[in-house]
Nucleic acid binder design. Sequence first.
RNA 1: GGGCGGAUAGCUCAAUUGGGAGAGCGCUGCCCUUACAAGGCAGAGGUCACAGGUUCGAUCCCUGUUCCGCCUACCA
Length: 916
Amino acid sequence: MSTPQLDKTYSPHDVENRWYQRWIDAGLFHADPTHAGQPYSMVIPPPNVTGSLHVGHALNNTLQDILIRWRRMQGRNVLWMPGTDHAGIATQNVVERQLQAEGTSREALGREEFLKRVWSWKEQSGGTIIGQLKKLGASCDWERERFTMDPGLSEAVREVFVRLHQDGLLYRGERLINWCPRCLTALSDIEVEHEEATGKLYTIRYHLVDDPTQCLLVATTRPETLFGDTAVAVHPEDERFRHLIGKHVRLPLTSRTIPIVGDSILVDREFGTGAVKITPAHDFNDFEAGERHELKRIKILDLHAHLRLAGCLADSAVAEAVENLPVAKARPKIEQFLTDQGFLDKSEPHKMALGKCYRCKTVVEPFLSDQWFVKIKPLAEPAIQVVEDGRVRIIPEAWKNNYLGWMRDIKDWCVSRQIWWGHQIPAWYCETCHGTPFLRRSSDGAPLIPSDAVAIVAKTQPDACPQGHRDALVQDPDVLDTWFSSALWPFSTLGWPKQTPELKAFYPTSTLVTGLDILFFWVARMIMMGLKFMGEVPFRDVYIHALVRDAEGQKMSKSKGNVIDPLHVMEQYGTDALRFTLAAMASPGRDVKLAEERIEGYRNFTNKIWNAARFLLMHLNGERAELPPAQRSFPDRWILSRLNTAISTVTHELEQYRFDRASSAIYQFIWYEYCDKYIEMVKPALKDPNSEQAKSTRQTLAETFETMMRLLHPFMPFITEEIWQTLPHDGTSIVRKPFPTTKTEWESQEVEQEFALLEECRALMNQERAILGHTAGKRLHFNIHGKTDVAHSAFIKHKALIEYMENVENLSISGGVDIAAPHLLTLTSGSTEVGTSMEGADLHKAKDNVTKQMAVLQKEVARTRQKLGNPDFVAKAPPEVLTDHRDRLARESRMIELLQQALSQITLEQTPHQAS
RNA sequence: GGGCGGAUAGCUCAAUUGGGAGAGCGCUGCCCUUACAAGGCAGAGGUCACAGGUUCGAUCCCUGUUCCGCCUACCA
């Protein structure tokens, strides 16, 4: 039998493509609801359909794939449900930009044509990220890939909408919402990002109508909104202003007068001047204050956040100057007018939070409009409950309070969006019932549904309204928030509202792996919707991983140019190296700072593994004899025992979602135990390929390496498959082979202790080499002495091994006699004494080396002595600590003595030479 | 403004019940030793942010300070 030979360095490229294709062809990732194993399921956090893979995705999906591959190998009935979401605003923006470049617009195309365009863009680019996930090795069940706008998922959306409406949890109404004047749509509260900005705090004089010589000073950061003011508020208990409540002031730059009201909620007496202007149509607080005082709402901004001053009685010169200007341009002009006309008292720099659209970073405006809202409190309560009582575990637990805090203070969710790409709201309005035809928006012809129009909510378009009017039904032009459909993802992807076998087998899912940034957007909403519509949590565990940053800790962004492109990394270093890096750095609760050097380090690791496999293949030719572990050679028994520990550690750490510790355990085991120690120890046994020793060793080599590949497979799927295939194995692919489990017959404390003795001995030999300046390559003669029976017999037993490992010629093992002798430099530690000849060494340097070591030791001894000399310490420290310290002192003193001895040995050695 | 987390080797991070701080990468020196120079061996490098407190003893617990993140919020 001949074994295949491998190239000298691992080249991941072909390996990856080849194996991924074969896995797919063999259907290894396909889930079967009738599979006998205990279900283990996950849904992928759906990436944007038109997006492409960034390093955050890479981390997210690597961790998921590790879990999935691990559980699959454990024999669980595994489903990893993949798919993408339609990313309403983002995708629409992309296509609109394309149209703009072509000199046209969505309005010009019309809704139907525009949607065709988006669909074709989706067809064209929607596969990109899926292809990239495959490159990453993601073992999703691609046959089940879903898209949030698939017919089935769209049906789920309509079903949920209708049922929420029936249950009174969905309503339409005129409210102040966050409006993006660039995307021209409403946003939910959490789609607004707050950013600190330095603006100005303007203090403006509002003159009293009764007595124009007096004025009320009003502080504002947004002077242009004064045109929408309908009152000024002061604190009702503020002595400075109390007498003014009920009086009126003249609104600067207009011919209007507005009342002064008392409002203890809105006004903070300490802030600014203690008087606040109220602009109910353009500020959330003012909106509520306006309700309390029954104030008119005057809109002064249009959809684009341009000033529209008709109806607010602005002075004509002012109106002319700022009409149709965006806020940013209007503000300085207003400031100028106020200054010129003596209204501006002062303006000073002021820090404030600016709300920006999370998609396009445009400053959002509070905007009065008709929108659909989910009444959230009744949904939130059970979703709080399940996290409190642990039915959903959030890992790391630190984020639990974050979740709970947000959920307890949750506000109604604005779900309507004024865009076209998405699930159009299944609500119709009857123009006949309404009495007059609805107005149409001039720009795109969309119907403007009046606030008081009655919505008919249904899964499909009704034939007639409840009054029996046909032909006059108009569907709500708005679409739903993308997160509305994402919230249903864990069950809509499984076929809901149909009761499918998949739904039965795989819901609730086992684990959700996601980033903190969508805890509220997505996780919270899935829990609410899952509980509401499935009556059960959508997942048991939520593992929240960190954000990926660059080596400086900066958030990666294209504009900063610090983006690490995972595709580029995979090209350069291989997918396995990238995956392993991400896993190794995924410490909980900490951001991942990714530097390319780290990836390179793990690329080296793949090469190390590769070359270890090469070594195996070079020596695996020939018969293999399988002995019971206890009868195998010392190196074999040792590596089996260590492998057992590695399996146990990796499994345990994966159970805790400690990807970092699991990967580090594998790394340590493979590199330092398997490669550095085991392979080295095994070489002598393989010298004669036909020996009994060689036959048994080959068996252990093959067996342990094969096991090791299975242990590593979830982390590095490609290289492990490639190597596994070349090793003696059963089956067609490592993907579905069992994950290693511990075997008690592999474990041997005795062998490990024996090994530790050898290591102790080798450490002393190395130290001697270092002192004497002998390189590892120089063959030396050593005397060793095992101070205990165990040590002595271990050295006797492993004489050849020590000779081989330490490049020793003719090792002498003395039994219980002092091996100090002329020309010998001796060193000792717990159970071992080692000596070698000083002949031919640079004794000056040796002396230096010893002296340095001694200085360090003497310091330590002094400290330990001092501690033990402290009566309080001796009286109060626990006995084991005391013993520990006394042992240490003894050890250190002994060591000094020995170094002292070594020093005199060296000195003695020097003398005759100096004499001669 | 509120909340949470962090500050440990040049860099990135570990260290569970307080008893002489470790790893990877990088760096330095020596080695192309037949699996691997993408490697081997050896080594340097730390007032565990600062100031107090508790304790025989603190990187660890408590208090305060500084700095850095993140989340959250309608102080005009």
